[in-house]
Amino acid sequence: MAFGINAYNDANEVIISSELKNLHFIAKNSSPYSTVGSTLDFGARAILNYRVNNCPSIPVPFMYMPANRKAAITAVRQINSSTWDIEVVTNNHTVTLYIFADATSVQSDEGQGIVVYNADGSAAFDSRARPLAITDAGNVSPPSTPRTVFAPTNLDPKYCNSVGNAWHQDGFRPTSETNIPLSTSLPSKPMFFYFSLAQAELEAAFTASEEECDGGSVKGNCVGSVRRYFWQSHYWAFYRGTVSWSNSSNIQTNWVAVNWDCYWREEKDGGIIGIGTGGSSSAGGAFPYSNETINLAPGLIIAGDASRYD
C-alpha cells in the first residue's frame, strides 16, 4: 500500500480501507408496501415487498425477525437508478429490514466527520453514516427436503377435491429443520443477511378406479354394457429455503411453503360383451412449474446487531 489509509481492529483485521468499501446503514424499514398470500395454511406464509429509496448502489438488506420466526430474502429488484424493491418470504410475519450499501449511497447533511476515498475517487467510508459491524458469518445449507417424513394420506383422487384442505396441509406442511450451533453468541436483537436460493417441490399422486356393469356378471366378467373409470390427482406444494433463530446460540435453516395446488386427470372407456366402444379423458387443475429440489449448496449468511441501527 503506497498511499491511502487502513484502520485495523483489535484482531488486526482491516475494518476501514481506502482499498475496500465499507457497507453503511442507509435505512430501516418495518413496513412492507405490499403483502401477498398472507395465510396460516401449510405452516404459514407471507410474501412481503419493501421499497428502498435514495440508494444509488445495490442495497444489502439485513432482516430482523423475532425468535423462532422464519424469513428469507427472495428477490432484489431495481425499480430505477436509486429505488429498489426487496422481496421477503416469511411464515406469515413482518420483518424489519436494515438496509446497507456502500458509501456512495450515504445521504447526510452533516458537515463534520471523516470520509475515506478509493483511488477512483468514490467514497469507501463515511463516518456520517453508521458502518456495518457484524457478529458472525458463514455458509449454511437448507435441510435436504422440506418434510422429515413425506407420506400424505386421505387425499381424494378425484378432481383434486382435497386441495387445500386439512389433509393436504397436514401432509405437506414443512417440518424439516437443521439446527446450527454458533461459536459466537448472537446479540439480543440479531439481524441477518440471507438470500433464499433453495427451492423444493413435493408431490403425491392418489388414484382410484371403478367399473360399472349394466348387465349380469359371469365369473367376474361383465356380460352387458360396461364402463370403466380411472382417476388420478397429484397434490403438490412448493417451498423456499428460510432461516430462523431460537436463542443466542442457535440458528436454523428450514422451509416455508410458498405455493400449493393440484392437477388431475380422468379416463373412461367402455365396452359391450368384451368389444370396446371407445374411451375419453379429461384433465384439469394446476401443475407445479417445477418438480425439482434445487440450489441446496451452502449459502452465505451474515449476522449483526440490529440495535446498533435503531
Partner: peptide, 20 residues
C-alpha cells in the same frame, strides 16, 4: 467514531466485512 449526537457508532473493537 461518534455520531453528531455523541453516540459511539464504530470503533476498533468492531468486526466487519468490507465490500471489494
Amino acid at each position: 467514531i461518534f455520531d453528531s449526537g455523541g453516540t459511539l457508532r464504530f470503533d476498533s473493537t468492531d468486526v466487519t466485512y468490507n465490500q471489494v
